[in-house]
Design a protein around this nucleic acid. Structure first.
Lengths: 237, 237
DNA sequence: ATCGCAAAGTTGGGGCTCCAGCATCCATCG
DNA sequence: CGATGGATGCTGGAGCCCCAACTTTGCGAT
C-alpha cells in the first residue's frame, strides 16, 4: 500500500488480484522471471520471490522447464506437509502440540469388495484391498477414527509404526498429492460406540486420498467427533 | 533422504525434528543465519531459505534484530492470509474459486450487553458494541452465517464493502493475529431457519477473533451447515 | 550503582550470477 | 513424411554481496 512496501509484494498483489478476479483463469501461464523483471521493473530476486510466495500460497504451481501456471484448485495446505507425514489422521500433531498425550492403535484385515472404495482407488472391484482401522486417543479418550484402504500388495508392513508416505516410498512410489474433502454428518452406530458419542452429536468426516501422480494409492475415511473436536490456530497477518 | 536432496532441506529437516521431538521447546532460539552456515556447512542462501521455509510452515517466528524462535502455538495458516482479508467468512473465497457465485449481505445494529462477547473482546460489559450479521449465499442458497462484534467506535463504515483489516487499519489499528477455534454443534432454531437446514443437520461453528497485538478488536461466530459444507483441497507433497 | 550510548548481531529486502535439469519447439536428416 | 536432435527458455538450487532497521549487550561515564 505505502510506497515503502517491498517491491515483491507489488508483484504478488497484482498477480493475486488477476487470479482472484478471473483475468488469469485456472491453467493460465504466469509470466516468467525474466518477463516479470521487465514488466514490473524489478530485479530478478523480487520476481523470483513473488513467484515463490504465490506458489507457497497454493495459487500457482511451477513446472520445471515449462513455467508457472494458475492452479486449478487452490491449495489450502501447501506448507503443512510435516504434520501429515507421521499420522494418518489430521489434527493429531496439533493435539500433541497442545500438550495432550495422543496414542493410537490399529489392526489390518483384508476387505471384501466395496464398489465405493474401489471407485475411489480406481481399481477393479476384484482387486484385493487391505483395510486398516485406527483409533486415536487423547489422554485415554477416543478422539478420532480412521479407516484406510490400500491395494493389498502395497500394504505390507502396516504393523510397523511408519508413515504411509515412507511405506509407499519403500515400494518406489512417491506420494505427490493429498486430496481431502471435508463435511459433517450423522455418525453411524459403530462410530458412536467407538467414539463414545453422546446422543445427537455429529461428526466431521474427512475423505482423504493419497495420489502418486495421477494414480490414487490410498484412501481413508477419518471420523472426528463434533463435540470433542476443537482446533485452535493462529495466523500472523 | 538421497544425497542429491537440496542442502537447505537437510537443515529444515534437522531443525524440524528438533522442534517436534522437543529438544527445541517453544520459545527456544534457532541458530542465526551465520551460525547455521557454520554449523551445517552450507551457504548463506541455503540457511536463509531453510529459516524461511520453517517460518512459512508456522513452526518458528522471526523477530527482526533479535532472531528466530520456536513458536508457542504452531501456526496453521500463515500463507492463506489473502483468503481472509476480503471475506469475514472462511471458505467463501474457496467456493468462489470452485466457480460458485458467492454473494453476501449484512446489517449492523448496536448490541445489548452480552457477558460472553465482552469477555472475548476483553472489554467491560458496559462497553457499547456493534453487532453485524452476515448471510453468505452461493448461487442463491444460504451457505454461511456470521455474527461479528466490534467496539462501537471502531465499527464505523461497516456499510462499506471493505474488509475488517482495511477498516481497522484506517483507525491506526494493525491486525497482527487471527485466532480461530472450530467445533461442530446443534444449530439454534434461528440458524436452522436462516440456513434452510433440514432436520437433524449439524453445523460447524467457527469462533474467530482478530487481535491487534495483545488486544482483541473483533470477534465473530461463523456458522456453516454440515451438509452443504464440503471443502476439497490438495497439497503437493 | 545506574543510566545512556555505541557496537555488534540479526532479520528481511534486494541485487547479481551460475548451473543442472526439464520442456518445448523447430529444423534437419533419413 | 516422420523421427531425431539440438537450441532456447524456464524453474529451482545455490553462492555471495550490500544495506536498512531493529535488538541486545556491554562498556564507560556520571
Amino acid at each position: 500500500m505505502a510506497t515503502s512496501d517491498p517491491v515483491y509484494l507489488r508483484v504478488v498483489e497484482d498477480i493475486r488480484r488477476q487470479i482472484t478476479d478471473g483475468s488469469l483463469p485456472p491453467g493460465a501461464p504466469i509470466p516468467s522471471r525474466a518477463q516479470l523483471t521487465r514488466k514490473y521493473q524489478v530485479g530478478e530476486t523480487a520476481a523470483r520471490h513473488a513467484l515463490r510466495v504465490l506458489a507457497a500460497e497454493g495459487l500457482i504451481i511451477g513446472r520445471v522447464g515449462s513455467g508457472h501456471y494458475v492452479r486449478e484448485r487452490p491449495d489450502l495446505t501447501p506448507l503443512h506437509r510435516w504434520r501429515y507425514l507421521d499420522h494418518p489422521a489430521p489434527f493429531a500433531a496439533d493435539l500433541q502440540a497442545q500438550g495432550r498425550r495422543v496414542t493410537w492403535d490399529w489392526h489390518s484385515e483384508p476387505t471384501e469388495a466395496d464398489p465405493d472404495i474401489s471407485r475411489r482407488l480406481r481399481v477393479k472391484e476384484s482387486t484385493p484391498l487391505t483395510k486398516t482401522f485406527y483409533v486415536y486417543r487423547g489422554d485415554g479418550r477416543p478422539l478420532q477414527l480412521a479407516t484406510s484402504y490400500e491395494p493389498m500388495e502395497l500394504a505390507t508392513h502396516t504393523e510397523e509404526r511408519r508413515s504411509l508416505v515412507a511405506r509407499m516410498y519403500a515400494h518406489g512410489i512417491k506420494i505427490t498429492e493429498i486430496v481431502e474433502s471435508v463435511h459433517t454428518r450423522v455418525p453411524r452406530p459403530a462410530e458412536s460406540d467407538a467414539l463414545d458419542l453422546a446422543a445427537g452429536v455429529h461428526v466431521l468426516h474427512v475423505e482423504r486420498t493419497h495420489w502418486a501422480g495421477d494414480r490414487p494409492v490410498e484412501t481413508s475415511d477419518i471420523v472426528i467427533p463434533g463435540d470433542r473436536f476443537r482446533v485452535t490456530y493462529s495466523m500472523p497477518v
